[in-house]
Computed example of a mutant assay.
Amino acid sequence: MDDEEAIAANKCPVCGSDPRTHPGLRFKINTKCYHRICEGCVDRNFSSGKAECPVAGCHVALWKREWRTQTFEDLKIEREVEIRKRVNKTLDRQEDEFETKRDYDDFLELREELIMNLVFKTDVAATNRKLREYAAANGIKTDTTEAANEPTKPVKRKDVAPDAADPSGLIKGLKKISIPKAKAPYDPFMGMSRTRDYYEVTESYVARARGKPAEAMLAAGYDFGQYMDECLLRAFAGLGVFIEDEMATKNNTAVPVPGTGELKAADDVF
């Protein structure tokens, strides 16, 4: 490359600035049309919002955030890397998601074919349509979505099984989705019956307020007194405390007092 070609390569196609006349001049590119303009032209043309690319003959609409610093010297490599990142982000599948190793290899070949179509501009419209349909069917939000701020609504095809891992039908050989069985809610009583004879559901209850006359009220679920009785029964029913048995045991352990004929309970050494 001679000096004139080097100067032309470092010259902004919009304002004509170059590093010789503007020391510290920096260029930016975008990932749609891949035109390279200076940072000043980006600020002037896109500070107010979305606008067309200022390069003559280009009518691609862009945002200011879509312009970034160039990474590779060759713009062809830059473009291919961006395409690969976009496609890989959409078709992000791992080997363990496929039935066999052959199915995974077929997927890698399909992904590479779609990438090359975009790189060499072959069937671009059909390739982008396949990627959009796949992203929409699988609920993937991509940068190419028209409404970027709105969630992508999954679109399922009617000719695909409901348990298919890819509703769009683009990727073959994926394992079917196994829907786990719903677990029963936790039962702290382990199946024990929670209905008791003393708990009755009626149309109305009588309020049992202390110090106040009984007042009738419509049933709103259950009576508080019955609920309290049920709670006490649940708390103490399993303790096995029986007063009568305790009294009988106490009488059996009593010993007579000498000279009086009275019974006296034996001292508990424990």
Rank of each mutant, 00 (worst) to 15 (best):
W63P: 00
V60M: 13
M1R: 04
S204W: 04
D103C: 11
E246C: 09
E52I: 07
Y34F: 15
T202K: 11
L263M: 12
E133F: 08
E39I: 10
Q70M: 15
F27W: 02
M192L: 11
P54S: 07
T152P: 02
E73G: 14
D197N: 12
G259C: 12
R194K: 12
Y186C: 01
K89C: 07
Y186V: 09
A147M: 14
W67S: 04
G16I: 04
E39F: 07
L91R: 01
A265Q: 13
R79T: 03
F72A: 14
G139H: 01
K183E: 15
T90E: 06
V81C: 11
R26A: 11
E73Y: 07
D106M: 07
R36C: 05
V87C: 05
N117F: 00
I140H: 01
P180H: 03
E97K: 03
I83D: 00
I7F: 13
L239K: 07
I77G: 07
V60H: 09
A237K: 08
I179V: 15
T21K: 11
I29Q: 04
D74W: 04
P151Q: 03
K64C: 06
E80N: 12
D245I: 03
C33I: 03
L263A: 07
P256F: 01
T122R: 13
N149D: 15
P185L: 07
S193K: 09
K130Q: 15
K176Y: 10
L108C: 13
P13G: 10
P154F: 08
H22M: 06
R68V: 04
V241K: 13
A135K: 01
F120N: 13
E109R: 14
M1N: 05
E203G: 10
I29D: 03
D187I: 06
M116V: 06
T71P: 00
L263Y: 07
R68I: 06
F236Q: 04
R26L: 14
E66G: 04
G24V: 07
G49S: 12
G16M: 03
A219H: 04
V269H: 09
E109D: 15
D163Q: 13
E246G: 11
K250D: 14
A136E: 14
A254I: 02
H59E: 07
V241C: 12
G191Y: 02
A216T: 13
K250L: 15
V87W: 01
I7V: 15
